[in-house]
Structure formats: structure tokens, C-alpha cells
Design a binder for these strands. Structure first.
Length: 977
RNA sequence: GGGCCCGUAGCUCAGCUGGUUAGAGCGCGCGCUUGAUAAGCGUGAGGUCGAAAGUUCAAAUCUUUCCGGGCCCA
């Protein structure tokens, strides 16, 4: 020990240092802190403050896709809203007036179902309740969930006009939606047709394809003979069909075959006593399936006696197997591509009222059939309760599916009749995927129903100006993130059939049109062009009373009175609109009506399932009424999976709820998870992934915290000019500028993981592990007046300002908290703009030079690590290595660089000579060899460096000259001695 | 069954139009520090780039098939 140290009083020099000081806690406690920040935003009305601040700026409108107002939020909602919020906030900070108006989808089956369930539980029947009373209950139910979800969305940190959201059930919305469908009627795009639709007997409604799910179901299967009545030379033979829906046999009007399948005529040679198929029967079957069919028919011996060609079959006509019961019409054979010989018989029983393909082949052959004298009228064989009608003679009153969703007696009765008619040759059961209602989970049926459609391919204003053509063009003019979305939507629009918009339900917006029962004209309709009185009446009434007005007594007189010659000829349509039409109209009643928004929207943002949903319906709705898409860009995200990449499910117990994450870790953690993920693909979440994000958050928070503590000593008035700053500070400003470029580019492409990645990497590698570590000595120990210290402080201030702002859209709670610590009394970071960094900061030459310096540094730290492992040194300040540099470039790079400072050692000796054999080298840094060398001499009690000038100042004998100077300043500024 | 998409270290992600021993951060192991301390620094170990075949002088990068996963349809 030196004399100086011996004689010195033991002083606690830490009090004389500029150590970080901050109240910003290391541990976030987000679950408690976030609600406090929310309360502050509420108190200060941040949303309106943002609007005021941005008044006059150009608008950016991300139009919210309305979630359905039932139930709590799940993780998918959280993902969706977080992305929307980050973009909203990003655009606000980029200098737009970025106004987000949340919305809710309120009409529709699921809510109606809930209310019905309630009635059932109370032993009431929905049909006994007046419709507007029922609608009022649905409205109240939706209102409740809007409130719940609104609170849950806000808890995620989502900022928007939650005090005045849009609702599809608001009176204004209902009025506009009704007017929108009237526009389709007015321009002749709306028509009434009949079509088999997916029908749920339990809910008594047609279902959209989005409303059915495929589940295992066991069906009765039957093999049925259709006797040949004419054509070819197959007299006495029968064509055999196979079906899983025996109850559709009364609806049969044709049998389909395929010209790509090889058929043959088969004779039964032998069969057991009492078998349905008996010796001598001749059956026409697909060659590939003949053996299977014979086996199913329990035939013990058979042989092929002839080949049957497709041309033959086309000329064949059949008799209905139940002709004796009244089905005494001609059953034609139709050639269809949908027929295969993968299973069944190679022939498809075709009931145009019970299947989409059946309907399509029937209609495409309509003219030819009529020419043959065959009526193409499609029978309505099943009513809305799943009961067979008079169009199904012999089976009237038989039930396909009961009100509870169970199998009725129709199948058994039809099978019995077929047996009695000698038409059945085999039967069985098949477990297969069958459509079920998403609500009741009960099987659905295809039944022929009158429905309202919007034409995809009829001319609107000019020849070729069809809805499909308009929509395809609009897709081309839209920007998709990611680009694959364009293909996907395009493919769907290109191939979709006409748009069914009607529902036979109560809770929704009525198709507010009238139909002339004699002429089939619509009101409004093309004949009403130029007369908008009807539309105005509906508009006014709905705005005042809601769509309930449509159901009030005297509605027809009220709306149509005086506008047509004979009111009695007109019937009021009571069907309601499919909810996809409602949500497809949000742009009309929200974007167009609100002066604080604009039309079209800059962006629609939803999960990739919405290519079939909201992107799709909004596109068609707007193209039909406005001729273009209601959006300029569409951004899609994937779905949230469990940690193993599979779907989350209750049975696996791997569901992660946003509520749990928020209460355990905080909303900012959830947001960080979204930001770090590739949202364009499916995302994964689980215990480990959340832990990773919590760790990343901690690192980020601590780095912010150190800056805040350091800034306690910052006085902007003392900031040196850029030119006065040391190279190391200018290097950091350069790096900050570079990171800023990446951040800007990342945000521009909504590539948040790139933004987070660049920021995290910068904070960890450049700041925490390098610059902070190096500069702690200067920041803590240098005299108050030191340029080096003041320059470092100025840089910390720039770093904090930029990083906090860049992170603010992503981590709004944490950055608000940090901002408050940096700027006591400031309102909110969310009223700030992203920083414009001076291009003067950019200095590539400096960066190139310092890349080399850091290479040399790596060799030194590597050498010290060896010493540490050998227990020869601990702290790097115990070393004063000898650095041999033989690379000319490196020598140049090191000019003016204090290597000891950079490597955080007590000294460095640089030589230009080749180092000794045993010196430390790195394979990827040529021309550098380091001899670790222990620093010798007295240790400065204040800065802990071992430097020769310790004790050179007699007044402060145990510290270095630099620290002595610092102490003198410190005392002069009032520090206690 | 069809359309669109995805599959790189334990985790999250980079790897452009094919070209040296495939990278980063986090996590993990070990060491240091104790003036960012329920923190900080250093260092180390981790990958047959889902699998196979093909094109090529050369493939994580192109082609095909298969496997696994997702969304939307049937």
C-alpha cells in the first residue's frame, strides 16, 4: 500500500460521484401500474388531446373491423387490437391525425340464439314474443358486451374514441344499412331467387358458410336402383346410385354420371335367399366400383356382361324408384364433372333442391331439359322445420331433423318405401365429415328456399360493368400486407357465386324493399330511378326509431303509401340482412358519416380469415354502391397458436388468455410479444415464449432506467456542440441515426419485429455492453465541467428521447412512465412526434474507424478473459495490457483513441512490433496480439483506476489527478467535504 | 379433396435476385464485478437450415415429391 492511502482518511467517495439517480423502478409492476396510467390518460383525456394536437394535419384512418359483441376477449382479439393500436399511434407520431374509432358488430344469429336460449330455459317460445320486444332484448345483450369488450380493449392500451364508437345496431347505422341494400335494389343488383341453402333446422335459418363447421356424423347410406325406361339397349336394367341422405330421394330429379368414368352392365348370378338384389338383376355401375357395390348388396356371384359408354348413358332416361307414390316423372341422366368413381357407384343421385352441385348441374341443363318436356321447377320438399311437405308425396309430415337437432323419421320411412318398391339393394352407415351449425353444433341440411341475392355478373351501369369486374379491379388497386393477400382475395372473388344476403331471422336490419306479387318488380327498383322518396322515408324512420320501424303495424302504408298505384299488389319483405352485409357497410355509416374520419380508409386490418369475411363483404358492398373498395390497403395477420404451433384448445388446456397475461405480466408484455413476432404468419404463445418477452422487457427497462438515472445530472444548457464532442459520442449519434433509418423503414412497412430488433440490438450491444460501460467512468467521475462528461450526457439525452419515442407506439405504458420521469410536468409522450435526427450525425468514416477500434477491443477483452479464468485478475481495471499492432489500417484507426478508456483498463501500451508467441490473438482479427499485463501502482480510491498520478495532488492524496480536480469542483459547487 | 401460406440454434427472428467455417438478441453453462445490484460486464456450448430426390462447379436460398402446421373452402 502506498503512503498516500495509508495517511488518507477513509472517504466514501461515492457521494462525490454523479451516480445514476432515479425513482423509475427497476421492477415494472405493470399489472398495478398500467391501470394508474390508464386513469391518467382518462383524466387528461389523451384521445381528445391528440385530436386537438393533430387538428389540421392530414388524416390517417385505420378503420376498425367490428368484433362480434358477445363474450370476453380472447388472445386473437388482443393480437388484432394491439396491431391496430400500434399503427394508429405510429401514424399519429409520424405526423398524421390518426383517429381510431372502434366498432362492434351487434346483429346476428349468435346473439339471437343467446336470447332464445334464455327463453327456452324459462319455458317460453320465442314465436310468442312480439318481434320488437325480442329485438330489444338482443339489443340489451349486445350493449352489455360492447361495454365489457370496450373496457378490455382499453386495458390493452388501445387508444381511440371509446366514448363514441360505432355500432351496427345504432339507429343511424341501421338506417344507412337499409339504404345501402335499397341502392342494390334500385340498380337492379338485388333479386329474389330460390336456391338450396345450408339450413339449420334447430335455429330455423339459412346459414352462411362461415356459420357451419364440419364434424363427424354417422349417416344412413343406401344403394338405390333407378330402372331404365328408355334409351340404349338396357331395357330391364337399373342404374344404381349411392347416397348418404335417403330423405332427399323425394327431391330427386336426375342422375348424374361422368364421361371420364368407365361403366359396365353387370348381372347378378347368385345371391342369398331373401336378398334385395336377386339373381338375374342387371345393374349399371362404374367398373372400378362394381365389386364393392355387389359386396355391399351381399351378392355372392356376378359378372360383367357389357360395357356401357358415356354416350349411351346420355340418351338413357330413368324412372324414379318411388314412381308408384306419385313420382311419375322422367328422370334424365346428366353429365357432370363433379361425379367420381372414388366411392359409391359412379352415379350421383341429383336432387337440385338439396345440394349446390346438384343445383348447378340442374340449372346448367335447364334449357335442354325443358326442350325435352321435363319441368325444371325445383320442388320445396322440406319446410323450415325440417318436415317433408306436399312436394314429397307419401312422406308428408315426416321429419328429417327434429327441433332438437336429432335425426327424425324421414330416412327410415323413405328407406322403408324403397324396400317396399323393390328399389333398395343395399344399405349401411357411414361416419364422415358433415356440416354442423356453429351455434347449436347440430347437423344442417340443404333445402330449397326463396332467398335474396346480389348478382355477381349482371351489368350495373354499362355492359361488362359487373360487381365481379368492379371488385377484381378494386383488388388490383389495393396494397396488401403481406402481398399474398391479394391473390387470396382475388381467387375468392373470381370464383364466388352470387351473394346471398337474406336471413329468415329477427335480429338484424330488414331488407327494406317491397315486392310486387304480380309483376315481381321491387320497390325501390330500377323503375324507381330518380325517385328517392321511399329511401328517404325509410332513412328518416330508422334514424328516429331504429329498424324496429319496419316491423311496426302499418309499415307498408307508411313507407310505400302514395308511391305505387295499387298498394295491395305489393308485399313487404320481412327477411333480414346477413350480418356480413351489416359489417360490409361500416364504411358507409361510419367512415362516410363521421366528419372526423374519411372515406375510403387508409387501411383495413384483420386476421387472414377475413379474406372470406369482412375484407370480402366490404369490398362487394362498396363496389356495388361506390364502384371501388372502401380501403386503400389491407393488412392481415395470422392466428395465435399454442407453443407447439398447434391450435389452442380447451381439451389440451393450452389456452392463453389475454386477461391472464395482463394480470400476471402486464399489457406491455403482451404488446412486446406481438411486436417481436412475425404477425403475417401464425404466432405462437405459451409459458416459455412469454418468459422470453418478460426477459427482453426487463433488459429494455433497465437500460431506459440507467439513462433516466444518468439524466438526473443533465443540463441541456451545458450540452457541447457536435464538433466539440469526443469521437465516441459522435459514434453513438451516428449509430442512433442509423438505427433511426431502420426504425423508419420498419415502421413504413409495418415490420415491427424489425423495429424492435434494431432497437433492442442497439440498446444491448452498442449501449449497455459498450458505450455505457465505457462511459460510466466519465459520467460518474469526471469533473462537472468536463466536456467529455457533458458530451456523454447530451448523447444520453438524445438517445433517451429518440428511443422512448420510437418505442412509444409499441410500449405505450412503459414509455409514458419513463417520459414522465425524464420530463416532470410533461403531459404525455403520446402527444409527441417521432424525432427528426440531424443528418450531420451521420458519419460513415467514423463508424468504419470505430469498427476497427472495437475489433482491437475484442482482442483485449479476450486476453483479459484468459487472465480472469486463471484468477490472475478480476476487474479489467486491474490490467494494463501491452497491445502489439502490426496492421497498418489498425494503427491508423487507433490514432487519437485512448485504448485504455475504450477497453476499460487502467492503461494500455501500444507497440508496432509483432507480439511474442504466447500473446493472445483472435483468428478473425489479424495483426493484433495482446499481452495481458497487470497494472501496478496505487489505485485511485475514487475511480478505482490504477494510474501513476494517484497522489499527485497533496490535498487529495488517495485519488488520481483527474479525480482530484473533480473533487475540487465538487466542493466549490457546494458538495460537502 | 381444392386454394393460399408457413416450417433456420431451447425461444423470437436475420439471412436480397444461389457463392468463403449459416448470423443476432434472449435463455442456458462458466467466470468477473458489487458505484445500473432481484442489476451490469465478459466468455462458452448449442443448428444434418422439416425430409428426400433433382438442377448446378456451387443450395438454407431454384424445382419436384413427401411429412408437419395454419387459414379459407369442399
Amino acid at each position: 500500500m502506498s503512503d498516500a492511502e495509508m495517511t488518507a482518511e477513509p472517504v466514501d467517495y461515492s457521494k462525490t460521484l454523479f451516480l445514476p439517480v432515479t425513482d423509475f423502478p427497476m421492477r415494472a409492476g405493470l399489472p398495478q401500474r398500467e391501470p394508474e396510467i390508464l386513469a391518467k390518460w382518462e383524466r387528461e383525456d389523451l384521445y381528445r388531446a391528440q385530436r386537438a394536437k393533430a387538428a389540421g394535419r392530414s388524416k390517417f384512418v385505420l378503420h376498425d373491423g367490428p368484433p362480434y359483441a358477445n363474450g370476453h376477449l380472447h388472445i386473437g382479439h388482443a393480437l388484432n387490437k394491439i396491431l391496430k393500436d400500434v399503427i394508429t399511434r405510429q401514424k399519429q407520431m409520424e405526423g398524421f391525425d390518426s383517429n381510431y374509432v372502434p366498432g362492434w358488430d351487434c346483429h346476428g344469429l349468435p346473439i339471437e340464439w343467446k336470447i332464445e336460449e334464455k327463453y327456452r330455459a324459462a319455458g317460453k317460445n320465442k314465436d310468442e314474443v312480439p318481434i320488437n320486444e325480442f329485438r330489444a332484448e338482443c339489443r340489451a345483450f349486445a350493449e352489455h358486451w360492447v361495454e365489457v369488450q370496450s373496457a378490455e380493449f382499453q386495458r390493452l392500451g388501445v387508444i381511440g374514441d371509446f366514448r363514441d364508437p360505432y355500432l351496427t345496431m345504432s339507429y343511424e347505422a341501421e338506417a344507412v344499412i337499409a339504404n345501402e341494400i335499397q341502392k342494390f335494389a334500385l340498380t337492379g343488383q338485388l333479386y329474389r331467387g330460390s336456391k338450396p341453402v345450408m339450413w339449420s333446422v334447430v335455429e330455423k335459418t339459412a346459414l352462411a358458410e362461415a356459420e357451419v363447421e364440419y364434424q363427424d356424423h354417422t349417416s344412413d347410406t343406401i344403394f338405390v336402383k333407378f330402372p331404365v325406361t328408355s334409351g340404349g339397349d338396357h331395357a330391364g336394367a337399373s342404374v344404381v346410385i349411392w347416397t348418404t341422405t335417403p330423405w332427399t330421394i323425394p327431391g330427386n330429379r336426375a342422375v348424374s354420371f361422368s364421361n371420364r368414368i368407365a361403366y359396365g352392365l353387370y348381372r347378378v348370378n347368385d345371391a342369398p335367399e331373401g336378398n334385395w338384389a336377386t339373381s338375374g338383376d342387371t345393374l349399371i355401375l362404374a367398373d372400378k366400383l362394381a365389386e364393392e357395390v355387389m359386396k355391399a348388396a351381399k351378392v355372392s356371384s356376378f359378372q360383367k356382361i357389357a360395357t356401357v359408354s358415356a354416350a349411351d348413358l346420355a340418351g338413357v332416361t330413368l324412372a324414379h324408384p318411388l314412381a308408384a307414390l306419385g313420382y311419375d316423372f322422367v328422370v334424365p341422366m346428366l353429365d357432370g364433372d363433379h361425379v367420381t368413381d372414388d366411392s359409391g357407384t359412379g352415379f350421383v343421385h341429383t336432387a337440385p333442391g338439396h345440394g349446390r352441385e346438384d343445383f348447378e348441374i340442374w340449372m346448367s341443363n335447364a334449357r335442354a331439359l325443358e326442350a325435352r318436356g321435363i319441368s325444371t321447377e325445383i320442388p320445396f320438399t322440406v319446410d323450415d322445420a325440417g318436415v317433408l311437405t306436399e312436394d314429397a308425396p307419401g312422406f308428408v309430415g315426416r321429419t328429417v331433423i327434429t327441433a332438437d337437432g336429432d335425426k327424425g323419421d324421414a330416412n327410415a320411412t323413405v328407406i322403408g318405401a324403397l324396400i317396399a318398391a323393390g328399389a333398395l339393394i343395399g344399405r349401411g352407415r357411414l361416419k364422415h365429415q358433415y356440416p354442423h351449425s356453429w351455434r347449436s353444433k347440430k347437423p344442417v341440411i340443404f333445402r330449397n328456399t326463396p332467398q335474396w341475392f346480389i348478382h355477381m355478373d349482371s351489368d350495373i351501369e354499362a355492359q361488362g360493368d359487373t360487381l365481379r369486374a368492379r371488385a377484381l379491379k378494386a383488388i388490383e388497386e389495393t396494397t396488401f400486407y403481406p402481398p399474398a393477400g391479394q391473390n387470396r382475395l382475388n381467387g375468392m372473388i373470381a370464383n364466388r357465386p352470387d351473394w346471398v344476403v337474406s336471413r329468415q331471422r329477427a335480429w338484424g336490419v330488414p331488407i327494406a324493399v317491397f315486392r310486387n306479387t304480380r309483376t315481381h318488380e321491387l320497390a325501390p327498383g330500377p323503375q324507381f330511378a330518380g325517385n328517392d322518396e321511399l329511401m328517404t322515408r325509410v332513412q328518416d324512420a330508422f334514424v328516429e326509431h331504429g329498424a324496429d320501424a319496419w316491423y311496426e303495424a302499418g309499415a307498408k302504408e307508411r313507407f310505400l303509401g302514395g308511391l305505387v298505384d295499387d298498394l295491395a299488389e305489393w308485399e313487404q319483405v320481412t327477411d333480414i340482412l346477413d350480418v356480413w352485409f351489416d359489417s360490409g357497410s361500416t364504411h358507409a355509416f361510419c367512415l362516410r358519416k363521421r366528419p372526423d374520419l374519411k372515406w375510403p380508409a387508409d387501411m383495413y386490418l384483420e386476421g387472414s380469415d377475413q379474406h372470406r369475411g369482412w375484407f370480402h363483404s366490404s369490398l362487394l358492398e362498396s363496389c356495388g354502391t361506390n364502384g371501388r373498395a372502401p380501403y386503400d390497403s389491407v393488412l392481415t395477420h395470422g392466428f395465435v397458436m399454442a407453443e407447439d404451433g398447434r391450435k389452442m384448445s380447451k381439451s389440451l388446456g393450452n389456452i392463453v388468455s389475454p386477461q391472464d397475461v395482463i394480470s400476471q405480466s402486464g399489457a406491455d408484455i403482451l404488446r412486446l410479444w406481438v411486436m417481436a413476432s412475425d404477425y403475417a404468419d401464425d404466432l405462437r404463445i405459451g409459458k416459455e415464449i412469454l418468459k422470453t418477452n418478460v426477459e427482453a422487457y426487463r433488459k429494455l427497462r433497465n437500460t431506459i432506467r440507467w439513462m433516466l438515472g444518468t439524466l438526473a445530472h443533465h443540463d441541456a444548457a451545458l450540452d457541447p456542440a457536435l464538433g466539440e464532442m469526443p469521437e465516441l459520442e459522435r459514434l453513438m449519434l451516428h449509430r442512433l441515426f442509423e438505427v433511426g433509418e431502420t426504425v423508419k423503414a420498419g415502421y413504413a412497412e409495418y415490420d415491427f419485429k424489425r423495429v424492435v430488433g434494431a432497437i433492442m440490438n442497439f440498446m444491448v450491444v452498442d449501449l449497455s455492453a459498450f458505450w455505457f460501460d465505457v462511459r460510466k467512468d466519465a459520467l460518474y467521475c469526471e469533473p462537472h465541467s468536463s466536456v467529455k462528461r457533458r458530451a456523454a450526457l447530451a448523447v444520453v439525452a438524445h438517445l433517451f428521447d429518440a428511443l422512448a419515442k420510437w418505442l412509444a407506439p409499441m410500449l405505450p405504458f412503459t414509455m409514458e412512465e419513463a417520459w414522465g420521469h425524464a420530463h416532470p410536468g410533461a403531459t404525455s409522450i403520446h402527444l409527441e412526434l417521432f424525432p427528426e435526427l440531424p443528418t450531420a450525425w451521420k458519419d460513415e468514416a467514423l463508424a468504419a474507424k470505430w469498427a476497427k477500434v472495437r475489433d482491437v477491443r475484442r482482442v483485449i477483452t479476450g486476453a483479459l478473459e484468459v487472465e480472469r479464468a486463471a484468477k490472475r485478475i478480476g476487474s479489467s481495471l486491474e490490467a494494463a495490457p501491452i497491445v502489439h499492432i502490426t496492421d497498418v489500417d489498425l494503427v491508423t484507426a487507433l490514432e487519437g483513441v485512448d485504448l485504455a478508456e475504450v477497453a476499460i483498463t487502467s492503461g494500455v501500451t501500444v507497440t508496432g512490433e509483432e507480439g511474442p508467441q504466447e500473446a493472445f490473438r483472435l483468428y478473425d482479427v489479424a495483426g493484433v496480439a495482446v499481452e495481458p499485463n497487470k497494472a501496478v501502482g496505487p489505485k485511485c480510491a475514487r475511480s478505482w483506476r490504477i494510474v501513476p498520478d494517484v497522489g499527485s495532488d497533496p490535498e487529495f492524496p488517495d485519488v488520481s489527478a483527474r479525480d482530484a480536480a473533480a473533487l475540487r469542483e465538487w466542493r466549490a459547487r457546494g458538495g460537502a467535504a
